[in-house]
Nucleic acid binder design. Structure first.
Lengths: 171, 171
DNA sequence: CAAGATTGACGTGTCAATCTTA
DNA sequence: TAAGATTGACACGTCAATCTTG
């Protein structure tokens, strides 16, 4: 096996390039599908889904950041953009004067439900359906291992509650 | 197995979320390391590496786009930014008056070689070393399958030439 | 002061339109 | 007209600084 000055073999570089490229192109394809069919991005979809699934119909910025594994400032910018498009609205938080609740507007709920089927189908076509059960297990295991290495504390706490599947009838 | 209105099981959503999250956080960690230690981004690194490995020391915008699997306009913006920082320079292309060659400056070459070891080490620590040989095979296979599904034509042609490992002594 | 959240500046990525040369 | 490439507008994401309330 050839080894260069970095200690990486050709196979290892190839693996990294393929992994990166696949994820990048998959994301682009999914964004195009969502934008074309529903006028929203994957970022929008993730936020809409998180709030849709929230028990009380609203989330704090910090909660959203935790659920999505985003920085708070990223959430704030995203919410501002979505609010300006009428998908969300901020509302004063009763218990804590520092924060606000983010909740869906009627348009936001419609956008999410309208996008759900098409997005899931595309995700199936371009990713899930291409994997065998054994491969899915490997992808899940390795993903969790990477996350664990990046942030040990966070992953421990996540083991507790796995989010329930989306129930469209809850609309 | 529970199935919701999208036809996805909880396991499938979890897989997708973990896969996305792992890749996203891994990218952020690698960007932070590169920025901190060498003042460049992963995008910069990819461009520098591609030109460094080029046989004649320069590439056309279109070639760069093909190697990196980027859109041409993305390459153009990136090259403009890197040129303004003194890492690259555009030069008139002899054979074709429409295009230009992109080549490294001395600073660009230095930046690439200076970043190489640290970046590879971080990539090893956060990704490659976490995977068993069998898992690496699965990740490579599935990545290539996804790419194939997204763009059948492109992948056929890529089977021909796998890039050689980086030889630092070529500096 | 700590924590929740927002803001501004800047780098990044996409799309559509445009410019120039083959 | 096609192809190679650039540009401008805009969405996205990060970091550091800031504002407000606990």
């Amino acid at each position: 096996m050839m080894v260069d000055a970095t200690g990486f073999s050709a196979e290892e570089w190839t693996l990294w390039r393929a992994y990166r490229s696949a994820h990048g192109q998959l994301n682009r394809a999914l964004d195009r599908q969502l934008q074309r069919d529903s006028g929203i991005s994957q970022a929008d979809f993730g936020v809409l889904a998180a709030i849709f699934e929230a028990r009380d119909g609203h989330l704090r910025v910090g909660q959203l950041a935790e659920v999505l594994a985003w920085e708070k400032s990223r959430v704030s910018h995203q919410v501002t953009r979505m609010e300006s498009r009428g998908l969300l609205q901020r509302r004063d938080c009763d218990a804590d004067g520092r924060g606000s609740w983010i909740e869906l507007t009627a348009d936001g709920r419609r956008a999410f439900l309208g996008a759900l089927r098409g997005h899931a189908a595309e995700l199936r076509r371009l990713f899930v359906d291409l994997l065998s059960p054994a491969e899915r297990t490997v992808l899940l295991d390795t993903s969790e291992r990477v996350l664990e290495e990046l942030n040990p504390a966070l992953c421990e706490s996540e083991k507790a509650g796995v989010p329930a599947p989306i129930d469209e009838t809850a609309a």
